[in-house]
Amino acid sequence: MGFLELLLVGIGLSMDAFAAAVCKGLCMKKVYIKNSLIIGLLFGGFQGLMPLIGWFLGKQFENYITSIDHWIAFVLLGFIGSSMLREGIGGKKEEEETLCPIEGEVLNIRELVGMAVATSIDALAVGVTFAFLKVDIIPAVSLIGVTTFIISFFGVFAGSYFGSKYKSKAEIAGGAILILIGLRILLSHLNVL
């Protein structure tokens, strides 16, 4: 996997974190850089940590499934991407209602950690595919973490400024990117590309 593909994976994975950051921005009357930094660091940190954990798990089974690793990557990325597409198209109205805590608790760290974990679970599965594809993991998770940090940081400001208007579009774009990357991995291993 080259730099551009890893960057696109990072962007695709960060769309859930972006959507959550937008929602946090909606809750803030005034956005402070410190708050955006905290949200970006938590979301980016977990988004970088989860693929690393997945990579370690995938390495344990690498020898057993090398012959079908491209199919696994295709299925996992397709599943994650289609899940993001469904969320983006269908929307989760009840979830949005619970994202704004009572005033004065906008940066509840426990809540933010929970959101960071929830938005990075799909990155765990991507980390498993990285192990099968023999991706150099440290640069990959660094790029994913930094990409998510930047996108989440600006997502807080976008939420404060634009509102929830672009949340579903971000999830749709992220899902489409992951599906296309999964398809490309499959086609290149089948020597179609």
Rank of each mutant, 00 (worst) to 15 (best):
Y64G: 14
I65E: 02
I65L: 10
T66V: 14
S67N: 14
D69Y: 15
D69H: 15
H70R: 09
H70D: 13
H70L: 09
H70F: 15
I72D: 00
A73T: 10
F74V: 07
L76V: 14
L77I: 04
L77F: 11
G78P: 07
F79K: 02
I80C: 08
I80W: 07
I80T: 08
G81L: 03
G81Q: 03
G81A: 04
S82Q: 07
S82H: 08
S83T: 13
M84P: 11
L85S: 09
R86W: 12
E87R: 10
E87S: 12
G88I: 06
G88W: 02
G88M: 06
G88H: 02
I89E: 01
I89R: 00
G90V: 13
G91Q: 01
K92P: 01
K93E: 13
K93Y: 12
K93H: 12
E94Q: 14
E95Y: 10
T98N: 14
T98H: 15
T98W: 11
I102E: 11
E103S: 13
G104R: 01
G104I: 09
G104V: 09
E105K: 15
E105C: 12
V106I: 11
V106G: 01
L107R: 01
L107I: 09
N108M: 03
I109R: 00
I109N: 00
I109S: 00
R110T: 14
R110P: 06
E111I: 13
E111R: 15
L112S: 06
L112I: 15
G114L: 06
M115T: 10
M115E: 09
A118G: 09
T119I: 14
T119L: 04
S120G: 05
I121E: 02
I121H: 04
D122R: 01
A123F: 05
A123W: 04
A123T: 08
L124S: 03
L124F: 13
A125V: 03
A125E: 03
A125S: 10
G127H: 01
V128H: 04
A131I: 07
A131T: 08
F132P: 08
F132N: 02
K134E: 12
K134P: 07
K134I: 05
V135W: 05
D136I: 09
D136R: 10
I137Q: 05
I137H: 03
I137P: 09
P139D: 02
P139C: 00
P139Q: 00
A140P: 09
V141H: 00
V141M: 03
S142C: 09
S142Q: 05
S142M: 13
L143P: 06
I144M: 15
